[in-house]
Nucleic acid binder design. Sequence first.
RNA 1: GCCCCCUUCGUCUAUCGGUCAGGACGCCAGGUUCUCAUCCUGGUAAGGUGGGUUCGACUCCCGCAGGGGGCGCCA
Length: 498
Amino acid sequence: MNVRTRIAPSPTGSPHIGTAYIALFNYAFAKHHGGEFILRIEDTDQARSTRASEQAILDALKWVGLRWDEGPDTGGPLGPYRQSERTSIYQEHSRTLVANGAAYPCFCTAERLADLRRTQAAQGGQPGYDGRCATLSAGEASKRIQAGEEHVLRLRVPAEGECVMQDGLRGEVRIPWNKVDHQVLLKADGFPTYHLANVVDDHLMKITHVIRGEEWINSLPKHLLLYQAFGWTPPEFFHLPLLRNPDKSKLSKRKNPVSILYYQRAGILPEALINYLGLLAYSFEDDREHFTLDEMAAAFDIKRIGLGGPIFDIQKLQAFNARHLREMSPTELLSRFKTWGLNEQAWLRIIPMAQPRLNQLSDLVPLAAYLFADRPAYAPTALLAGGVDGARLVQLLRIAQWEVEKAADWTFEGIKQIFGQIAEKENMKLKQLLPPFFIAITGAAVSLPVFDSMLILGRDMTLRRIQYALENLDSQGFALKKDKLKEFEKDYHAKYGL
RNA sequence: GCCCCCUUCGUCUAUCGGUCAGGACGCCAGGUUCUCAUCCUGGUAAGGUGGGUUCGACUCCCGCAGGGGGCGCCA
């Protein structure tokens, strides 16, 4: 059998460290068996997917050293590899499902579904579709479709019994069918949901082993139902434990930097990141702890994956990185500095800003040091020196954080607009608003322009520094407690939109 | 609330019934070093809990507890 695995990221934000983690195991497994590793973009969420995010994910995965045999950029015999370009395929397949009764049209409105969920929650039961449209006659359904009534396609799920499934790492897992929702397969906009697109594509792209996050294990019954309905042999499934925050919750950006771009910018080497990731939930039979991607693939044994969710420990990642750094020759290290960003091109962006502020050539490096640091150095009380009250500053930093996350693209104009808008909505002069941001981003009240700095640092490093500032204030007793924060976020959305 | 998964040092992990429970990160101490860092040496620290099975359980089974995930026209 020709082994084929895939990574199927959704292009809805910064490239996630978890994507690299899952991709690594897929890659190692495929290459160990002399097979192919495929990259597929799951951009069926029209509202949130962007091309910029897709590109960033591709670049980030390439940066860590992963190479795919087929993908949206490299092409391949079973493309297209972008789901938004395969809608006709899904629609065609969904017709098969309706024809053989595996799926049915549903005309329920979003309001009714929200209502349904609310009452179900109130009654303390498991929320889920009640099956109202499941019993509609074919004639009735097609009449309403003809009439142009908006509808979705739902999966028909057995009412009783249980789904017995095989997980390659856990063995047999059973889930009662009545705990499986009548999943929407085709949305009203004609796009498929993850479940449909994923199954159809995995089959059409001849994926033999699906290695994915544990978050999917509960939807495996739906997927198996689809394979069965199509008359296809399902691939083997392996659900990897999820990466965690230090508090053991699922790794999230609110508690940890999760963007690969941040680690890149902070000066983590791709081979160190891969090395570290390869040690989470996995161990080599010979106990080795330092290895390259190729070495991992050569020795990879999927059965050695552990099932406890590993905590992503930045300190240990740094230790591995330090070791890789130390093992290099100075010449090699110098070239790493250049590719990392300490190069002529970067200085040409910095120097024009620095020039008016220089008295001596020797002023340049101190002035620009923060642009190459992980975090700027400043006194604990510096953030408050601008005159903005601590409690208020926490709010402003939060708003900035959300606005920066939300920004469609990362340009000077965009950044300027974000802060202009905050100043306006918060009834402040930009001059009052900005001082603490100068500290948070550059580490000093007097420095190079802050918007340009943010631009150069990149969105993820900017977010990281805002986070550092929030942590700093927290340690001084200024923070929004959980419930207050929620309330504040609500007000924020009312004020700034979604 | 319901369903599913998981459970060895603080953290990542080894152990496939018999080990002084090993390694790595962290931390502590000592050595090397003009300082510091590196590097070297040593130390610290673990089988959630209650029952079984067995001559013998970290390892197999069951209960409990704890942790995590899922329950969207998001993936």
